[in-house]
Design a protein around this nucleic acid. Structure first.
Length: 851
RNA sequence: GGGAGUGUGGCGGAAUGGUAGACGCAUCAGACUUAAAAUCUGAAGUUUCGUAAGAGACGUGCGGGUUCAAGUCCCGCCACUCCCACCA
């Protein structure tokens, strides 16, 4: 055995060995319980960063731990491989997006390999491979068949020069295309949608089935779904037959309506506008619709609007009120029209004061909140409300809604903020939508036997954001699968979030060539027992995946409601870097390793620098790459550091000194075992007390590490327990000849195995004659009887303040304990002249005298 | 504006209502060494009194409360972080 711990010598050796043994292949052994551990699969950017390492290390520890616990573990890895960066790379470098993507995947796999992660690579998948996207298309057709995939016009950013659709991020602050510089137009275009709103209620309700998800993720999803209960009410239009429907959560304030506002895009705008207001209204609509979303939503922006000249009639009191249009009303939400109640709504109040509209209080505020210069938005008692005067708000809501319903001009309505999911993208590097447009048959799904609809090879990229497929004639022109006539293919591709909405299902049956997955397989392995990933996916990815699961359940393809049983959102990895305020962009970030901390200067220009944190997920510019760390310290040290430095859900600051600390700890373990193996077993006089103490330390460690890993993901405290056990063994070298000491070393290695797999394997191999390897061993069993201590420390308190302690036998009775406390040094000192009013005895822990 | 969370030494962080600061980093002292590194041993919240051994006071963002006992439970503040946000 080497005298010195040298990770470079042992890590590659064991990685090869594990690979050859096929140690991490998930089997179909149904005699064992299953455990499915999953990290969110990466986008193959070509650059593995510390955030990835943290993510994958966490699931790896759990996977290894569960294997030792006797579980049949599924721990797969794959690639979220479609997406825009590949297309941009193709534009910039003139290479095929596939070439770029696959070379990145190879690169990242190479970077992952030395980490010693226990993946079942047999199940590797890439969403851009036809073997995978064939089934994405099949699932799309399931949605289509269920009526959950549909087309409708949606307003998009249109570049009139490049003749292409732009993403919101591709439009600059002034509403110009980043590429052509042309003023971007808002155009309604036919787009594909998934009807996620059909599942809004279940997506909301089933959050209750997820007790092991972080509260804040559930709250975010809840807010995103945004359920509210209110009333749908119809206002009449004077001299016309149409009605203006509004949605309100405050039907109790309906007598306070002093105007009605339509969104500028609302179809009724044309009908209600009077001739003399037409020019004003047209100009206003033009102005608002040409503005970017960002401008229109901008904070603190004053609300703008114009009167249409039209007059509405409040059906409750027959009062005539003006119809306005305003930019603060959103066309997409509710009915796209709002009743204006300035007295009881903050936004309406702002608008009304700005344009001199009447403010009519209809809900009384308690004296202290009496309305002065703001809207009163809390509940109260109704006034000025006809026959509803004197009714309290909550009751009035119900009564007024019921009254409207009886009169036929309203009803109760539940409203969600969740919108349908716009899934079509006008891009090349995505999964083609398997639909044919036939002039006579309409939208025709591509039949199963013609799947996959392959991405064409001969294409020309039409610029960022544009549809390249539409220009590939051999792709576009086809025949209708139904009637055989001339037809065109759909040229949109799917949002990449669709690819990632079902990959965790595919892992259960990754090589199936007949269907997306076999139901028995998916029902066996799913739901995922532990899902780990960044908080940035708290809403979209997780919501879409939940939606997919529910739809596929309703299609009979699987039998569970929720895909991810437990969710852990890991914190970011940050690094201390310096900023050069004189530079811009990425050049301003300078890794701390290149800078003298006492005199921070830009190594290139000599300019003074300012310290700052930067997230390691954009790690190109801040120095510490996983490759370097592994090359310097080894994978085990990197893993230990990242788990020990902070609890998993918190941010983690990269610090070289702490990495060295972990390296030191592993070296200590190495020496401990080596010295034991080298030392001739010395016989010594038995020391039962010391042996019992050591055994207690061993089993305390088993208990603590098990609880930390299994229940709370407290890897940081689990590792500190390993350190405590190591220190105890270090201190107990006199016991080397005893069985307890050996038990201690073996237990230490077993407990360490999920965290530092290579070191544990190497030392296990040296220490024991076992040939199966440490990762095939069982997790150590806890012997609770070993935890019982011979003696206990009793705390003596006077009036709740600790005044001393004493040691006594663990089987001390309550009475003895009190008496011992009384005669203890502290007791003697404080109780001499005192009257004891009360004594509290906590058995085996504490005695408190109140004097 | 709405919601969620956090606040403990020089730092990362521990603490089923029961000795606050486990474990580690950094620091200091000692041993080993010609020397350094590595390694090992030890010290250490702040403060007052004391030459010292020691003794006391104060300490978990702030102010109250419950309790024999509060970092932990309750009430009210403050600060910071994150998410959503003209959603009627």
């Amino acid at each position: 055995m080497d005298a010195k711990y040298n990770p470079k010598a042992i890590e590659p050796k064991w990685q090869r060995q594990w690979e050859e043994q096929g140690l991490y292949k998930a089997s179909e052994d149904s005699s064992k319980p299953k455990y499915y551990a999953l990290s969110m699969f990466p986008y193959p950017s070509g650059d593995l960063h510390m955030g990835h390492v943290r993510n994958y290390t966490i699931t790896d520890v759990l996977a290894r731990y569960r294997r030792m616990q006797g579980y049949n573990v599924l721990h797969p890895m794959g690639w979220d491989a479609f997406g825009l960066p590949a297309e941009n790379a193709a534009l910039d470098r003139g290479i095929h997006p596939r070439t770029w993507t696959y070379s990145n995947m190879a690169q990242m796999k190479k970077q992952l390999q030395p980490l010693g992660l226990s993946y079942d690579w047999d199940r590797e998948l890439a969403t851009c491979s036809p073997d995978y996207y064939r089934w994405t298309q099949k699932l799309f057709l399931e949605f289509f068949d269920a009526g959950l995939a549909y087309r409708k016009a949606a307003v998009v950013n249109w570049d009139p020069v490049d003749q292409t659709v732009l993403a919101n991020e591709q439009v600059d602050g002034e509403g110009r295309s980043w590429r052509s510089g042309a003023k971007v137009e808002k155009r309604p275009l036919e787009q594909w949608f998934f009807k996620i709103t059909d599942y809004a209620e279940e997506l909301l309700q089933d959050l209750q089935k997820l007790p092991h998800w972080p509260e804040r993720v559930k709250v975010m999803q809840e807010n995103w779904i945004g359920k509210s209960t209110g009333a749908y009410l119809e206002f009449l239009i004077k001299d016309r037959t149409e009605k203006i429907p509004v949605y309100t959560t405050r039907p109790d304030t309906v007598y306070g309506v002093s105007y009605v506002v339509l969104a500028p895009e609302h179809p009724l705008v044309a009908q209600v506008t009077s001739t003399d207001q037409k020019a004003t209204v047209d100009t206003f609509v033009q102005k608002v619709t040409s503005e970017s979303e960002i401008d229109r939503m901008a904070e603190d922006r004053p609300k703008q609007g114009v009167p249409t000249g039209g007059v509405a009639i409040n059906p409750f009191d027959g009062k005539e009120i003006p119809i306005w249009i305003a930019d603060y009303v959103l066309f997409e939400y509710g009915t796209g029209a709002v009743m204006g109640v300035p007295a009881h709504d903050t936004r309406d109040y702002q608008f009304a004061t700005q344009y001199g509209l009447p403010i009519i209080p209809v809900v009384t505020a308690p004296e202290k909140d009496a309305m002065t210069d703001a809207a009163y938005t809390d509940p109260g008692v109704l006034i000025n409300s006809g026959s509803f005067d004197g009714v309290e708000s909550p009751k009035a809501k119900k009564e007024i809604t019921a009254y409207a319903e009886a009169q036929g001009w309203g009803k109760e309505q539940i409203q969600y903020r969740l919108r349908d999911w716009l899934i079509s993208r006008q891009r090349y590097w995505g999964c083609p939508i398997p639909i044919v447009h036939c002039p006579s048959c309409g939208l025709v799904p591509v039949p199963d036997e013609q799947l996959p609809v392959l991405l064409p090879e001969d294409f020309e990229l039409s610029g960022r954001g544009g549809s390249s497929l539409a220009k590939v004639e051999s792709f576009v022109y086809t025949t209708c699968p139904t009637c055989g006539g001339d037809a065109k293919r759909e040229t949109d591709t799917m949002d990449t979030f669709i690819d990632s909405s079902w990959y965790y299902l595919r892992f259960s049956d990754a090589k199936n060539t007949a269907k997306p997955f076999d139901s028995d397989q998916v029902n066996h392995w799913l739901p995922v027992d532990q899902y780990v990933g960044g908080i940035e996916h708290a809403i979209l990815h997780l919501l879409y995946s939940r939606f997919f699961t529910k739809v596929l359940r309703d299609r009979g393809l699987l039998n569970f409601d929720e895909p991810f049983q437990r969710l852990l959102t890991q914190g970011m990895v940050q690094g201390w870097t310096y900023v050069n305020p004189n530079k811009s962009g990425n050049a301003q970030w300078i890794p701390s390793a290149k800078v003298d901390a006492n005199d921070p200067k830009d190594p290139e220009t000599g300019e003074a620098l300012v310290g700052s944190y930067k997230t390691m997920s954009k790690s190109k510019y801040n120095g510490v790459s996983p490759d370097e760390v592994i090359a310097t310290y080894g994978a085990d040290t990197a893993r230990m550091f990242i788990l020990f430095k902070a609890p998993p859900e918190k941010e983690l600051e990269w610090a070289e000194a702490d990495v060295e600390g972990q390296s030191r700890f592993l070296s200590r373990v190495w020496r401990l075992v080596q010295e034991y193996v080298d030392a001739a077993e010395t016989h010594m006089a038995p020391d039962p007390k010391a042996e019992r103490n050591l055994r207690r330390a061993i089993h305390t460690a088993i208990k603590e590490v098990t609880e930390d890993v299994e229940e709370n993901y407290q890897f940081n405290t689990a590792i500190s327990e390993l350190m405590i056990l190591t220190n105890a063994l270090s201190d107990a070298k006199a016991l080397r000849g005893s069985g307890v000491y050996r038990e201690g070393l073996e237990t230490l290695l077993l407990l360490l195995a999920p965290f530092a797999p290579h070191l544990a394997e190497e030392l296990w191999n040296e220490l024991t004659s076992d040939t199966q390897g440490i990762h095939s061993q069982s997790w150590p069993m806890l012997d609770s009887s070993a935890l019982v201590a011979d003696t206990v420390t009793i705390v003596v308190q006077i009036n709740g303040k600790t005044r001393g302690t004493f040691e006594t036998a663990a089987d001390v009775s309550k009475e003895q304990q009190e008496e011992l406390a009384r005669i203890s040094e502290a007791g003697q000192r404080y109780l001499v002249d005192a009257t004891i009013r009360k004594t509290i005895v906590v058995p085996k822990k504490l005695v408190n005298f109140v004097i």
